[in-house]
């Protein structure tokens, strides 16, 4: 399989800040890559390099086999970009905005018009088609901006937080449209804050922090990296917590995490029978359990484990964060 997007050792500095610091990436043609990372990790900066908006200080990047610096013009012919903030013209109507982009993609007057209507329909904006963007809600703007990225049916689609600020229906509609494009052979690079979305829609995920990729792989690979399943129990009497901790220590692979309300969570080594075993042991110790579950690690766990480890070296604060996560 050929790579649609390649980055090797990208470096981008803004004064004192190093936004990209040896960023490597490879996205296979026809696949979806989700770029995850905390605020300020460098996601938008990477997106801007691929979209030819900024030139890296060092390193090398290619989109569809074209160098983003030396062949910027050809790269622009193959990409569709929707940036982190909607880039729409407030004074133009939705239809005019899309038609303008169609004209600039040289679809011709008629081609641009029909493509605009197609996309307006796709994104549920036909009724707002003749209203100016300044009268659009935030989510409508976002949808129009996304539609703008699709005008030329790009081979490589680059979306920076495409679904932030969208309601569930719009998010689903977005994924449907984008999914069709990808099944038609296009490649998608997206950044997102919604981990469950990345889990569902991305073929591969790259977790980025401080301008470099910490880990990459399929969602399953990443989850396995974080470790096994989690056993979560809720005690009816929070006072039993410390006893419960020592009881469960025998089945856990790591330090149990708990909070004052009686929630307890431990990473377990083997999934088979551990749920029943754990409850039996607690029961034998006379500890009453109101809820118990065994769950696979989520991308949230991956994200926390990977970025938490780097951002907050002391174990204390990272387990505190995990504890909050468990409560949720």
């Amino acid at each position: 399989m050929t790579a649609a997007i390649v980055a090797q050792g990208l470096v981008k500095r803004y004064g004192e800040t190093t936004a990209l610091n040896g960023f490597d990436l490879e996205v296979a043609e026809g696949t979806v890559l989700g770029l995850l990372g905390p605020n300020g990790a460098g996601k938008t900066t990477a997106v801007r390099v691929f979209a030819t908006l900024i030139e890296p200080d060092a390193g090398h990047a290619e989109v569809a086999g074209l160098d983003v610096v030396r062949q910027a013009r050809q790269v622009r012919q193959t990409i569709g970009l929707s940036g982190q903030y909607a880039a729409v013209d407030e004074m133009l109507t939705g239809q005019e905005n899309l038609e303008l982009l169609g004209r600039l993609h040289h679809l011709g007057r008629r081609g641009a018009r029909s493509r605009a209507w197609e996309l307006l329909e796709r994104f549920g904006l036909t009724e707002a088609a003749n209203r100016r963007l300044k009268e659009y809600s935030g989510g409508m703007r976002r949808r129009l901006d996304l539609a703008g990225a699709l005008v030329a049916r790009p081979k490589v689609l680059i979306l920076d937080e495409p679904t932030t600020g969208l309601d569930i229906r719009s998010r689903e509609a977005t994924w449907e449209t984008v999914g069709e494009l990808v099944s038609g052979g296009s490649t998608l690079l997206l950044t997102t804050q919604y981990l469950e979305e990345a889990d569902r829609f991305a073929d591969r995920i790259a977790v980025i922090e401080h301008g470099a990729v910490l880990a990459g792989g399929t969602p399953d690979e990443l989850k396995n990296q974080v470790g096994g399943h989690r056993l979560e129990v809720t005690l009816s009497r929070p006072a039993d917590l410390s006893r419960a901790r020592s009881v469960l220590a025998s089945v856990s692979a790591g330090e149990p995490v708990s909070d004052a309300e009686g929630h307890l969570s431990v990473t377990v080594t083997a999934a088979d029978g551990v749920l029943v075993d754990g409850i039996r042991r607690l029961d034998a110790a006379g500890i009453e359990v109101v809820d118990a579950s065994l769950r696979r690690p989520t991308l949230d766990d991956v994200f926390l484990a990977l970025t938490g480890r780097i951002v907050e070296p002391p174990i204390e604060s990272s387990s505190e964060k995990e504890a909050q996560e468990v409560v949720r």
Binding site: A51, L53, R73, I79, G83, A87, L101, H105, G148
Partner: peptide, 13 residues
């Protein structure tokens, strides 16, 4: 400021 130039600059014009 409105990001319109970003968008234009990502187009093949």
């Amino acid at each position: 400021q409105r990001g319109i130039v970003d968008r234009f600059r990502s187009l093949p014009i």
